[in-house]
């Protein structure tokens, strides 16, 4: 007899997973970061406390902390090794980061939220 976990997992739909980008959590006291393209990754947006601060309108009253989520999307098909190269390049450029989260699509649907 299958365990409950096995039963639950059996209901899971098989989905095609594809690496499409990386969310980088950057710590800086110098305000909104600016990035050139880094390898196969291009910065799509930057948010602070969940609010998009680049590109587009930013309220002058917006409270910002020293921790930015920077979304980098792949400009071509990428593998995990490309992320390693990207992280190394980002560090060499002097960016201090607290975490990285790979972004995957599942059957083509994003497995990640947008910023407000």
């Amino acid at each position: 007899m299958p365990t409950f976990t096995e039963t639950a997992k059996a209901t899971k739909k098989k989905r095609e997973i594809k690496l499409v980008g990386v969310d980088m959590y950057i710590i800086t006291e110098k305000g909104i970061p600016k990035f050139d393209d880094i390898g196969a990754f291009k910065c799509e947006f930057i948010s602070n406390r969940g609010t998009k601060v680049w590109p587009g309108f930013v309220s002058p009253d917006l409270l910002q902390v020293n921790w930015y989520r920077c979304r980098f999307m792949a400009t071509k098909d990428v593998q995990d090794a490309d992320v390693n190269t990207f992280l190394d390049a980002l560090t060499k450029k002097g960016w201090w980061w607290s975490a990285a989260q790979k972004l995957w699509t599942y059957d083509g649907e994003p497995g990640f939220s947008k910023a407000y």
Binding site: D23, S47, R49, G50, Q101, S113, Y116
Partner: peptide, 13 residues
Amino acid sequence: NTEDSYAAIEHMV
């Protein structure tokens, strides 16, 4: 009104 789990940072990890 702006923080907590409303920061819109969600991922299928």
